[in-house]
């Protein structure tokens, strides 16, 4: 059977969703770990060092394209699913108590995903565009003479509004992950009584910890808790 047919099928589509989702989850882990280095309280030296490595290493730069590709697949596949699923019930129920049988966030993955995407565009404009395209020379160098991404963060998060948007983005991510993490395993067929609980616990922990770490970054920057 041809792969195109596989990915046109409903199961193939959710497989793709799960695979790209898990791929993005691994990215989140890397991203959160590196960014956490802002809390070294060394004026961003360690953080800037790793940021430079990520921005200059050829392998990482290549993987970045992979990341974009994965993200686009995830988004396009997700929107396709959304459109098809809406079309599968042209006349809606007049009265529906969906909350009695499922969680709102599991039913709102497309909405949460869109919010995350909007946030992501803003986020890319804040950092990625500056580091990769327009350059951040004007922010000067840090004490180790490295490009100072740390300073960019300090500037961006001076605005309370931006911080609020980032925190909201992290909430969207939390709910998206809360369903998405274990859902990805189910889509891959990895549902087993022996391991389900472990997957669920890890999923919940991941959904809480990672967005929390992300949310704390703008907050602690804004309130001057990192120096």
């Amino acid at each position: 059977m041809a792969y195109t047919a596989l990915f046109k099928s409903s199961i193939g589509k959710k497989l793709l969703m799960g695979l790209t989702g898990l791929f993005l989850i691994t990215f989140l882990l890397v991203h959160a770990s590196i960014n956490a280095m802002i809390w070294f309280q060394d004026g961003g030296v360690t953080f800037n060092k790793w940021a430079h490595f990520m921005g200059s290493n050829l392998i990482i730069r290549t993987m970045e394209w992979g990341l974009f590709f994965g993200l686009i697949l995830h988004v396009v596949d997700g929107l396709m699913l959304y459109a098809q699923n809406r079309a599968a019930r042209p006349v809606k129920y007049a009265y529906n108590r969906a909350g009695d049988n499922s969680s709102w966030y599991s039913r709102s993955m497309a909405l949460l995903g869109t919010l995350i995407l909007l946030f992501l565009i803003l986020h890319l404009a804040h950092f990625w565009v500056k580091t990769r395209i327009t350059g951040i020379e004007k922010y000067g160098l840090d004490t180790e003479n490295q490009e100072n991404l740390f300073a960019v963060m300090q500037e961006v998060f001076r605005s309370g509004l931006v911080v609020a948007i980032y925190v909201a983005g992290c909430f969207s991510l939390f709910w998206h992950l809360l369903h998405g993490f274990k859902s990805a395993f189910q889509s891959l067929g990895l549902n087993h009584v022996k391991y389900n609980e472990t997957i669920a616990v890890i999923g919940i922990a991941f959904s809480i910890i990672v967005p929390f770490v992300f949310a704390m970054m703008p907050i602690s920057m804004h309130f001057g808790l990192v120096r």
Binding site: S9, I11, Q84, A98
Partner: peptide, 23 residues
């Protein structure tokens, strides 16, 4: 393969692991 193909051809939606069916 055959059953999934037919399921898709009938115009059912896609599964997003919500779990309302089980409930």
């Amino acid at each position: 393969i055959k059953m999934v193909e037919q399921m898709d051809a009938e115009g059912f939606g896609n599964c997003t692991n919500i779990g309302a069916c089980e409930a």
